[in-house]
Design a protein around this nucleic acid. Sequence first.
DNA 1: ATGCCGGGCGAAGCCCGA
Length: 269
Amino acid sequence: MTKIATWNVNSIKARLGHVCDWLQEFGPDIALLQEIKTVDDTFPRLEIESLGYNVGVAGQKSYNGVAVLSKTPFEIEQTRLPGEDEDEQARYLEIVTETDAGVIRAASIYLPNGNPPDTDKFAYKLRWMDRLIEHARGLLALEEPVVLGGDFNVIPQDEDCWDPTVWEDDALFRPESRNAFQRLCHLGYTDAFRTFHPEPGAYTFWDYQGGAWQKDHGIRIDHLLLSPQAADLLVGSEIDRNPRAKQKASDHTPIWCELAPVRYAEAAA
DNA sequence: ATGCCGGGCGAAGCCCGA
């Protein structure tokens, strides 16, 4: 079995203790991290390698930054999302590794927030999503198990937030954002968590403000999208709320999926 | 609720997040 998790940690330095605890307790085979907020040279590589992980980093000073941690060694395929050479923001890192479930291509994605919606930030978000769709379309042609995981900054449907009216005009919930997310899925990618959990009220983010966590006023914006070859291996997906409950927590919590070697996946289906 | 938290940077207060 191969466990693949994604977590926006909101600074790897501020969250190193929690991340190490989670790696030891949950033990993902592949962990996709976002908002590490540091450059490659200052990423706490040794601490994480000492827990048995290979580390890949696409970092940036102060903002953004993504990483991949994997128990199995990997090749780095992309350190930026293709399609806009001037884009310097570190929001995409793609690797290929051989796991117990076979060769898997995985990408750590930190999709732009896009607020406020009447600014270039929103235009940048939508351009970034178009670029992601084009790249994801190309990956499908490889006919490999692909996992696109990360903070997509998109609330896909009404049931993915506690009060849709509050989010109505937010870049995370605007029709343009949701439409682009839907176009991405409709290429042939499966939302791993939704496959097992059609019910509303499952969240991955709770604002630090206004007691959002205590009131369970959250949104589901962290996703794992699987190519058909990966979806065929999918045997489970859950949100791990424990890290969000701790002191000095990230405002996001991990979400994971489990892929099985093909003969086990067939038996479970 | 466009900043009530919380992090980075850098040493006070601003930028940014969702």
